[in-house]
Simulated assay, not measured.
Amino acid sequence: MREEPERPPAPDGADAPDDSDLLARSARDPAAFVLAGPPYLRLVGPVHDSAGRSGVAIEYDGEDIRSRVVIDPKTALPMEERYTTLGGPRDGDLVSGVTYLSLRPVRDAPEAVPHEDIPPDPDNPLDQLGLRKR
């Protein structure tokens, strides 16, 4: 059994929460996790995703892309991810987005198709030049 290193006490003298406690609290209240989390995360608040469902949005601004994740406040599961341009004349344009209509474990995943069985694509320039790895 691996022995965990001893954690130093929190500055105010109270015991610092362990990782499992932090994960449990973040699942129960994602907004509180963001507020207590890294400073670059921003809580937007209640929003609706592209499917019209209510959730809580969290944003992060990169150099030229704004990332937004909408989380279901009851389950802490992601409902949507959206990436938009940040700044410039095309500020706010959608770069990409994914809306999760269903998230669940899969017991039996379909069998993978070996890449050798995939026929060459005559419209793919890499296949025409013989540069595509197989």
Rank of each mutant, 00 (worst) to 15 (best):
E80I: 07
Y83F: 14
S96P: 02
N124K: 01
L103M: 15
D64L: 08
P89F: 03
D127P: 07
I118K: 12
D93T: 00
G62F: 05
D121N: 15
I58P: 00
L101R: 09
P125S: 08
D29N: 14
R66N: 01
D108H: 12
E59V: 12
P105V: 01
V113N: 08
Y60H: 13
T99V: 12
D91Q: 04
V113G: 09
D91M: 02
L103C: 10
D127S: 08
K133P: 13
L103K: 15
S50C: 05
A57Q: 09
R104G: 00
R25Y: 06
R2W: 11
L126V: 04
D19H: 07
D19N: 05
P119V: 00
R53Q: 09
Y40N: 02
Y60F: 11
S20T: 13
K74T: 03
L126Y: 01
G62P: 01
D19I: 15
S26R: 11
D72W: 05
M79D: 08
Y83H: 06
R104K: 04
H115N: 10
P73M: 00
S67V: 01
L129K: 06
P78T: 14
G88E: 12
D64W: 10
S96N: 09
P73Q: 02
G87I: 06
D29V: 15
R66T: 01
Y40W: 04
P114H: 02
V47Q: 14
A51F: 07
L86P: 02
P105Y: 07
L101P: 05
D12Q: 14
V56Y: 14
P8G: 12
E111A: 13
E111W: 02
V113W: 02
R134F: 00
V106A: 14
L129E: 10
D108S: 07
K74V: 04
P38Y: 05
D72K: 04
D21W: 10
R82C: 05
A112H: 11
T85Y: 13
R2I: 01
D49H: 02
P122F: 03
A31W: 03
P30N: 09
D21E: 14
E116P: 02
V70C: 12
D91P: 04
D21S: 10
G97E: 15
L101Y: 07
H115L: 14
K133H: 13
Y100W: 12
D15A: 15
G97M: 14
D15E: 15
T84A: 11
L101G: 14
S102L: 13
R68K: 09
Y83T: 00
G130Q: 01
P11S: 12
R66P: 00
R7F: 11
R28E: 07
P30A: 13
G37W: 08
I65L: 14
R90W: 04
G130V: 05
D64S: 11
K74E: 04
D21G: 09
H115R: 12
I71C: 10
G88Q: 12
D108L: 08
K133M: 13
V56M: 15
D61N: 12
D21P: 01
A10N: 10
A51H: 04
M79A: 11
